[in-house]
Design a binder for these strands. Structure first.
Length: 289
DNA sequence: TCTGGGGTCCTAGGACCC
DNA sequence: TCTGGGGTCCTAGGACCC
């Protein structure tokens, strides 16, 4: 995994060198680039998009030359269209969607092509008779009953409308660790050992990011795939493995979650905040006594 | 496919307060 | 003592993404 991470860092460096710093990295192998400034603001949207194509070609060539890998790139007027364009020809594709052609480009695609439409929403849309993005474009009804309050935005997206800005923040909202057992178990020693390791892993990640957490959550899954979570919030944020471990044990006991064997056990923390000076100083003072 | 792991965001319901 | 409504916070579950 570290190999992937290192490769990802190298490629993102390469991309920044060619396209500028406006890069939103979504995962190890995916990023959005905002290149409006580089291509210049003159001309219509279509002209600007066409001027971005040579840059996309240069990035593809550099990634192949310097990292020996194929990159797939979608060029479009916004994140939605660029994302869909990039997934249309993998690997090694370069797909361009113009502002003037975006609605037509999306029409024949399945509804699930839209970012945020997963299995459940796709099935709900199909029940309403909407299978393709074109069906959504043509639908005049209010389908909030099927897909919830998201309907208005979904309909705009079906036409390729998307004004989400790139998100450059690297804020972490939660940290978690979980394990699925090869065989379901209710063995307390096994479960405690697992929780301890997970708590240590989480504490390590928190400390690397200088974060502490207010809320600790445990997650269990049984043989029938029933999955439960239980959480507890503290007044003071905590960051050490033993506190996270103790609270997760307490949650398991308090809610009697190990009444039957577990297939999965996990721990997570949320309500993250920067570690304060006092929290940094306290353990130090204790060790000096 | 009898289902891995690490995330984000949204929603519904309950507790609590005024 | 029971009752109403609104706001806020917390909890739990689920949809979705990579």
């Amino acid at each position: 995994m570290d190999v992937y991470r290192a490769e990802s860092v190298a490629i993102m460096e390469l991309v920044r060198g060619l396209a500028g710093e406006a890069v939103e990295q979504v995962s190890v192998d995916e990023a959005y680039l905002e290149v409006t400034e580089q291509v210049g603001g003159e001309g219509g949207h279509d002209e600007m998009i066409r001027r971005a194509v040579p840059m996309a070609e240069a990035i593809k060539a550099a990634v192949r030359r310097e990292r020996g890998l194929a990159a797939t790139i979608g060029v479009g007027p916004n994140k939605l269209t660029a994302k869909i364009a990039s997934s249309s020809f993998k690997p090694d594709g370069l797909t361009v969607v113009l502002e003037s052609g975006k609605a037509a480009y999306l029409r024949p695609l399945p509804a699930g092509a839209i970012h945020g439409v997963g299995k459940v929403t796709e099935a709900a849309l199909a029940r309403a008779g909407l299978v393709t993005v074109g069906d959504i474009q043509d639908c005049q009804d209010d389908l909030r009953a099927y897909v919830g309050s998201w309907w208005g935005e979904l309909r705009r997206m079906a036409f390729g409308e998307d004004d989400r800005p790139l998100d450059f923040s690297d804020d972490i909202r939660s940290v978690s660790s979980e394990n699925t057992f090869a065989r379901d178990t209710a063995d307390r020693a096994v479960l405690r050992g697992c929780l301890r390791e997970q708590a240590e892993e989480i504490a390590g990640r928190l400390q690397r990011h200088r974060l502490a957490a207010v809320t600790v959550q445990v997650k269990v899954r049984y043989s029938d795939f029933t999955t439960l979570t239980r959480q507890v919030s503290m007044e003071e944020a905590l960051e050490d493995a033993s506190s996270i471990y103790r609270l997760s044990c307490w949650l398991l006991g308090r809610h009697r979650l190990v009444a039957r064997p577990l297939r999965l056990i996990g721990v997570g923390v949320t309500g993250l905040r920067a570690v304060t000076m006092r929290q940094l100083v306290l353990p130090f003072m204790e060790t000096r006594r």
